[in-house]
Design a protein around this nucleic acid. Structure first.
Length: 469
RNA sequence: GCCGCCAUCGUCUAGUGGCCUAGGACGCUGGGUUUUCAUCCCAGAAAUCGCGGGUUCGACUCCCGCUGGCGGUACCA
């Protein structure tokens, strides 16, 4: 039988890391088994869902490379199907109209809470006389449709792909609402109708859905169909383990990570490591390798906390493993308005080992296209003697005398010789030169940087530095 | 409250009864390479396996209880 999985985000916010994580598992499982991965937009919460959020989610999934094979299907475009299915249940006496007001229900729950009872619907409208239902319906009383939970069913058991056997007592579930008066269905019901309609064979979802599973299984039974296989993976926790991943300890929007220069392959790799353990000890794995190695049985059962440093490290690993050409292209795409965009290719070899994310490129190379600000104290911090100015003058002199066109090998030879003659350490000399060129004590390799700047600019900078000493 | 899931270094994890005086990764510390910073390489610190009972010749591994964390308990998804 063909394996069919789905990912079903609700468009009530921008693509969250947790949503990307949720997409990864059904994607990997479907690809691993040459199956079909379906994208379904669960937009039945009309208060909170927006088209923009749906688009943001779709864009994000495309960027990550988690391409779906079917959809996107929007539930709000499928309302007639849900209506038909709800009526089918009513006809078969498996669902009923409920005329209880919100107020009544709230009071009922309050009473139950006070008496330390489970807060489940009393079933007041369960067996209303036919005439009363007709009368209320025709006089326009507000109603919802409730699923008639088969209490006699006893324990609902299922074998979770990740957790193993799980069971719930159906008595504790209550008659849930499956349809609002306005014809918009509720979550547990749409999910079942859609999973049924889309012939989903494997539902991989967060373990916050474990307690929804018995309700959904009961609905599948009401439709006389065996339920799909369920697998509930753990959620991602905040960095401080203070609960499920939220804005509390940092951004959770995928678009923020993208804007910060994280690579999609690094994010996929990291998310995979958060919920699954690869065989062997390699952790840097491409999407293709993940698909090949993925096994549900190796999915983790306990929740993992977000670890930003590990993502940073993984992103750095990906950057370093790229060819210079590829990194250049990525940077050019990432920095479309960069002032020396055409020079990025030249700079890339100097910074590849020095950046963890694409955005690091800018502060690290800023001095190459912006005149630095000089501070006397920085020079004095490197060379503490009185004749600082004289030394700098000599450095400028050496620079000016170097044969053109400039070669970086010549720089090094010339300044090592200079250091020896003047009795300076090589480090001191190179650092004075570095600050003179970049205004900073930390920079990409000095001589390569000078070559990129060119002889005139380099000498001009040193002269400007000299002027403040 | 009730229902459910989970529990090994700071974090992510390996571990399926003896191979564990608990292995790996990130991070951290120290050292090496190096013109700075990084990269890279080497070394190190870091878990009495949440607690208490069992079962067993033997338990991180099996069972029970407790505690703690998390999730659910909606006309949200």
């Amino acid at each position: 039988m063909e394996i069919r999985t789905r990912m079903a985000p609700s468009p009530t916010g921008k693509l969250h890391l947790g949503t990307a994580y949720a997409a990864l598992w059904p994607y990997l499982f479907a690809k691993k088994n040459q199956g079909t991965f379906i994208l379904r937009i669960e937009d039945t919460d009309t208060e909170r869902s927006t088209k923009e959020f749906a688009e943001n989610i779709i864009d994000g999934l495309v960027w990550l490379g988690l391409k779906w094979d079917g959809g996107p299907f929007y539930q709000m475009e499928r309302l007639s199907l849900y209506k038909e299915k709800a009526e089918e249940l009513i006809k078969e006496n498996k669902a009923y109209y409920c005329f209880c007001s919100m107020r009544e229900l709230e009071e009922e729950r309050k009473k139950q809470a006070a008496a330390d009872q489970s807060q489940i619907y009393s079933g007041k409208c369960r067996n209303l006389p036919k005439e009363e239902i007709e009368q209320k319906l025709s006089s326009g009383v507000d109603f919802v449709i409730r699923f008639k939970l088969p209490v006699e069913r006893g324990k609902v058991k299922f074998s979770d792909l990740i957790h193993g056997e799980i069971e719930f007592d159906s008595q504790l579930l209550g008659d849930m609402v499956i349809m609002r008066k306005n014809g918009i269905p509720l979550y547990n019901f749409v999910v079942v109708v859609d999973d049924l309609d889309m012939k989903i064979t494997h539902v991989l979802r967060g373990d916050d859905h474990i307690s929804n599973t018995p309700r959904q299984i009961l609905l599948f039974e009401a439709f006389n169909t065996p339920p799909p296989q369920y697998g509930h993976y753990p959620m991602i926790l905040n960095q401080d383990r203070s609960g499920k991943l939220s804005k509390r300890t940092g951004s959770t929007a995928l678009s923020d990570y993208r804007a910060d220069g994280f690579l999609p392959e690094a994010i996929i790799n990291y998310l995979a490591l958060l919920g699954w353990t690869p065989p062997g000890d390699r952790e840097i794995l491409s999407k293709e390798e993940l698909i090949q190695l993925f096994e549900i049985k190796n999915m983790n059962v306990g929740a993992a906390a977000w670890n930003q440093q590990k993502l940073d490290w993984i992103n750095g690993q990906y950057i370093r493993s790229m060819s210079d050409e590829e990194l250049t292209q990525r940077l050019q795409e990432f920095l479309p308005d960069h002032p020396i965009r055409e020079k990025i290719a030249e700079v890339v070899p100097l910074i590849k080992d020095r950046i963890k994310k694409l955005s690091d490129f800018v502060p690290l190379t800023n001095f190459l296209f912006t005149e630095p600000e000089y501070e006397k104290s920085v020079f004095q911090g490197i060379y503490k003697k009185e004749n600082l100015r004289q030394i700098m003058e000599k450095i400028v002199e050496v620079m000016e005398k170097l044969p053109r066109p400039w070669q970086k090998e010549v720089f090094e030879e010339a300044f090592r010789k200079f250091a020896e003659e003047e009795g300076l350490s090589v480090t001191e000399t190179f650092q004075l030169l570095r600050v003179g060129i970049s205004g900073q004590t930390v920079s990409p390799p000095l001589f390569e940087s000078m070559q990129i700047l060119g002889d005139q600019e380099s000498v001009a900078r040193l002269q400007k530095a000299l002027s403040i000493l």
